[in-house]
Simulated scan of single mutants.
Amino acid sequence: MTSPIKKVCLVGANGTLGSVLLAALVQANCFDVSILQRSTSSSTSSASPSIPRIIVSPDLAVDELTTALAGQDAVIAAFPLGQGDQHLRLVEASFHAGVKRFIPADFGSCDAADALPQEYLPLYRRKTLVRERCEAFAARPGSAFTWTALVCGHFFDHGLRHGLLHFDFATRTAQILDGGHARASASTLRRIAEATVRVLQRPEQTSNRRLYVQSFNPTQLEILAALEKAMGEKWTVRQVDSKAYLEDARKRLESDDEEAVLVAVEDIVFVLGALDADWTKRDGFAMELLGLEDERLEDVVEEVVAAYRAEAQR
């Protein structure tokens, strides 16, 4: 039987997802939580500045990380992939340090191992390399190392508010892909955090598995309807052909302009997460396993709209 997880180290605690993960881990009141932080970082967590920090050099060298992570039961990677090398070193160090459970930075917006993500973006190929490294260490004879990949779809509340889902609050304009009828799983930040806590609380059932979670599984047209209801006005719809859009974004990846490349990456992620992310059809759909139920789309959209209006009034 897998032993309980008590000591949890979070890497990337000040990020968009990391800050919500940290709050959920603390609120669960069943973990000893610490934060791995680079020595060059000056940030402190607003969720709980008293949480212990493990300070390491910025390059995240394996030997130093191994020493720093000794005694930890679980490590959660919640910082950007970048070139992926730091994540690979973090996996290796976790294994050598005797960490029981590693949660890689899989999360959203689509399953990195699927064909289209692999084709379009190095980001997803790097995610797959990290997952494969986890699998390799877990398969070693006598290894106590295990992993869980949580795949959650688009970060719905964050993505909706900040235009990443291509619903533009300022202009009340929605880009709708291929008619808008495809269903895609998406998760609020709190759902991802909740699912992560549940994984750690169920170490045996979630060991060495790719698990899929969601807040809901709407179509783009259903999101649009919820937005129009919450805002009390009609939006302008721009129909988009996904294949042409992806090819245009692929060409923009070759630009010398870093900002243009970043936008192209975000556009590709938007399409893949809207058209290739129906987790209800996947083996590993883990809502029942983790004791989770869908949130109500209209309620979440109303929360996002309320936040938008409050910000606009400042």
Rank of each mutant, 00 (worst) to 15 (best):
P4T: 06
K7M: 11
G15K: 10
L17Q: 12
L17M: 13
S19V: 10
Q27S: 10
A28Y: 01
T44M: 10
S46P: 04
I51N: 05
S57C: 14
L65N: 02
A68K: 11
L69D: 11
G84C: 07
D85S: 15
E92A: 11
A93S: 10
V99T: 11
R101E: 02
A105C: 14
D106V: 05
S109F: 12
Y124E: 07
R125F: 03
R126F: 12
K127S: 00
F137Y: 15
G142V: 14
S143I: 14
A144T: 15
V151W: 11
C152E: 13
C152P: 10
F156R: 04
H162D: 15
R172W: 04
R172K: 15
T173K: 12
T188W: 01
L189D: 03
V199L: 06
E204I: 00
S207M: 06
F216W: 12
E222W: 09
K234H: 08
A244E: 11
A244N: 13
Y245H: 14
L246N: 03
A249W: 07
E259C: 08
A260P: 04
L262N: 13
A277V: 05
R282I: 03
R282Y: 06
D283A: 08
R296K: 14
L297N: 02
R309M: 09
R309T: 02
